[in-house]
Computed example of a mutant assay.
Amino acid sequence: MTTASDPRAGVGFGLAAYLMWGCFPLFFALFEGVPAFEILIHRVLWSCLFLAGVVTVLRRWRPVREALRRPRRLGRVLACAVLIAANWGLYIYAVESRQVLQASLGYFMTPLVNVALGMLVLRERMTRWQGLAVGLAGAAIALQLALVGALPWISLVLALSFGTYGLLRKQVPLDGLSGLLVETLLLLPLAGLALAGLTRAGMSHFLATPSTTALLVASGVITALPLLAFAGAARRLRLATLGFLMYLNPSLQFLIALLVFDEPLTRVQLATFALIWTGLALYSWSAWQGRPRPGVEGPA
């Protein structure tokens, strides 16, 4: 029987979560002809319904009701909702426009953005190695700007939006499942109005074909499943262990971009990735050095 402290089960849940997230480009590439904005609308609608069903089955409505009864405290949750929606929408756009390499780079950069935000916003102390890792990320962006003449804006916005989301999410006293449900509930009215507008204008693809309808509905389930697996991993693993598994997601996206979507990898892009990977290696080494000792669980 699996317990909440079983690390093998935790690794299994973690692998499942990050493998699903890493394979997202293959799923969203199936939406041929459906704009990213419309996919985002249905992702909000159907994930909200699916999460409500999961919360009902698990009988965990109490924290959701308590959060909704205090609208004055929902400011950070609303900010989280806007940030995660922007992140989702831009990610879908990156897949549809075959810029998965940029998306991959953005998620590789996220841990380093988290370190920088922790220092700038929370006044956390940055170790020497973490500082060097963040500096390498800055050098990677500067390299692209100098040699290509353009910023990798998709990578930057994905990393900054998800990093800021994580920063605000830590300040919200809700677990992952309840928090995501409240976030999608706050977005639900806007998503409903947007869908009604598309339908009235004759621009909705929802009932265009059975396959498109099924994919749009499935987008909600696909959104929630890795979150549930991640929650199972977070309860069983130390934070440092979970952090190492996290690199599976952008690594898979990187491989899918090259091997499935045949995206070109220029020398400048390769140099940018090399700088980011070096920074992540330093960051990971620093995190491993500061890991909790055996028998002491990290925060979940």
Rank of each mutant, 00 (worst) to 15 (best):
M1C: 04
T2F: 10
S5T: 09
G10S: 01
G10N: 01
F13L: 06
F13K: 05
G14M: 00
L15D: 00
Y18R: 06
L19I: 05
G22H: 05
G22Q: 06
C23W: 00
P25N: 15
F27D: 01
F28P: 13
F31K: 00
F31I: 00
E32D: 15
E32G: 10
F37P: 08
L40Y: 11
L40R: 14
L40W: 12
I41Q: 09
H42N: 05
R43W: 04
L45M: 09
W46Q: 02
S47C: 06
T56W: 07
T56K: 12
T56G: 09
V57C: 05
R62F: 06
R62E: 12
R62Q: 10
P63H: 09
V64R: 15
L68C: 03
R69S: 07
P71H: 03
P71C: 02
L74F: 05
R76C: 10
L78I: 13
A79P: 13
L83A: 10
I84K: 01
A86Q: 14
N87G: 07
N87P: 01
G89M: 09
Y91S: 01
E96I: 07
S97I: 08
S97F: 13
R98D: 02
S104E: 09
S104K: 06
S104N: 10
L105A: 04
L105C: 00
N114G: 09
A116Q: 06
A116N: 10
R123K: 12
T127C: 13
L136T: 02
I141L: 10
L143T: 07
Q144A: 09
L147M: 09
V148F: 08
L151H: 07
P152F: 02
S155K: 15
S155L: 14
L156N: 11
L156C: 11
G163Y: 02
T164V: 14
G166S: 12
G166F: 14
G166V: 14
L168Q: 12
L168K: 11
K170A: 04
Q171P: 08
L174P: 03
L174D: 05
G176S: 10
L180C: 15
L181Y: 00
E183M: 12
T184H: 02
L193F: 10
L195Q: 12
A196R: 14
A201I: 13
L207G: 15
T209I: 02
P210M: 05
S211R: 11
T213P: 12
V217I: 08
S219C: 04
I222R: 12
A224C: 14
A224E: 13
A231C: 13
A233G: 02
A234F: 00
R236I: 02
L237H: 00
R238L: 14
T241H: 06
T241P: 07
L242T: 07
L242R: 03
S251G: 14
F254V: 06
I256H: 00
D262W: 13
P264Y: 01
P264H: 03
L265R: 09
R267H: 10
Q269N: 11
Q269M: 07
L270I: 04
A271L: 08
A274Q: 15
L275I: 10
I276W: 00
W277Q: 03
T278D: 08
L280F: 03
L280D: 04
A281N: 06
Y283I: 01
Y283R: 08
A287K: 11
A287R: 09
A287D: 13
G290F: 06
P292F: 07
R293A: 15
V296L: 11
V296F: 11
E297L: 11
E297H: 07
P299F: 03
P299Y: 07
